[in-house]
């Protein structure tokens, strides 16, 4: 039986062959890059929890009022709240979805899921990773040994339990996930999209290889010479990348390894606001921080100089000793 979830290999190859993969400059604005994301698309989101979240790109998609995106991410934090709360997404594939362990349950996620306004499709963390990996490898599935025997598996008819043809053991086959677009935030890349990631890479390399388009946002655009001085630090090759947008503090209020830690005062205030009233609180938050600012810099100014500097001092301290 055909699994409608898995992209036929032929289509994946055709899609790739039609992309302009030449060594060319791809620098553009958030507004321009957003044109790669159309209503109803499958969108893979890089980073995990409160780390290297492509928040600036999400911010732009909210402002452009995209709809019905089916999103996938390793672990979902307030980015998922924003995607549901703004109406940009009504389906998130992930392994964990709350604002963060410090704050308990997300009232925004609960409201959307419990009232049937949106779907939270739960897979194990490794399963999400292996779905992106299968997508990046160009195979329709990969076998894993977790989820078996659990109700997480029972909720996922998309995964198939089989008896291994070699050993007879039970295995679970998880289907490849090839997002239409991946949004990934990195510390630095060149104008071609050769991306260097410091610290935790999460599932971003598999995600970049799996996706049919990749939008990179980056703290800095550096020269290609600088990339070539440390090619071992390059984690995503330019030919995977379709757009490069320079956005300093592009993960705020989440963290970007070695540059800033999460902006926890802002996060606290956000959580208090939306959890006290997930409808009105979210509407007010989006209005103030997403719709009203004229630019990303103005959004950062609203978070506040003190908070941004404090997060930066902590972020850079990882290199202090």
């Amino acid at each position: 039986m055909l699994n409608a979830q898995v992209e036929p290999y032929q289509r994946l190859r055709e899609n790739l062959s039609q992309r302009d993969r030449s060594l060319r400059e791809k620098v553009m604005t958030l507004e321009e890059a957003a044109s790669f994301v159309q209503d109803g698309m499958k969108v893979g989101i890089g980073g995990s929890t409160m780390s290297r979240t492509p928040m600036a790109m999400i911010w732009e998609l909210v402002r452009q009022r995209r709809k019905n995106l089916s999103c996938s991410r390793a672990i979902t934090s307030t980015d998922g709240d924003i995607l549901f709360g703004s109406g940009v997404s009504d389906h998130i594939i992930t392994s964990w979805f709350a604002q963060g362990i410090l704050w308990g349950l997300s009232k925004v996620m609960r409201r959307h899921v419990e009232q049937g306004l949106a779907r939270y499709e739960e897979w194990s963390h490794m399963a999400v990773g292996m779905r992106f990996r299968a997508g990046g490898m160009g195979v329709p599935f990969l076998p894993i040994r977790s989820m078996l025997g659990s109700d997480v598996m029972d909720q996922r008819p998309e995964a198939k339990q089989i008896d291994c043809p070699f050993t007879g053991e039970k295995l679970l086959l998880v289907p490849a996930l090839n997002p239409d677009v991946a949004l990934i935030h990195v510390q630095r890349c060149d104008a071609y999209g050769n991306a260097q990631i410091d610290g935790l890479q999460f599932m971003d390399i598999d995600l970049a290889l799996a996706a049919n388009r990749v939008i990179l946002t980056t703290e800095r655009i550096v020269s290609n010479d600088q990339i070539r001085r440390a090619p071992d630090q390059t984690k995503i090759p330019f030919f995977c990348v379709d757009a490069v947008v320079e956005v300093p503090y592009g993960s705020a209020p989440h963290e970007c390894f070695g540059i800033y830690e999460p902006m926890l005062n802002h996060m606290e205030a956000y959580v208090a606001k939306v959890n006290s009233d997930p409808v009105e609180g979210m509407r007010e938050y989006l209005e103030r921080y997403f719709y009203e600012p004229k630019s990303w810099n103005e959004y950062l100014a609203l978070i506040g100089m003190e908070e941004v500097l404090d997060a930066s001092q902590k972020g850079r301290s990882i290199y202090n000793d």
Partner: peptide
């Protein structure tokens, strides 16, 4: 609806 498994199931 609770947060889900994360790596717990694995």
């Amino acid at each position: 609806r609770l947060p889900g498994t994360g790596g717990g199931n694995d």
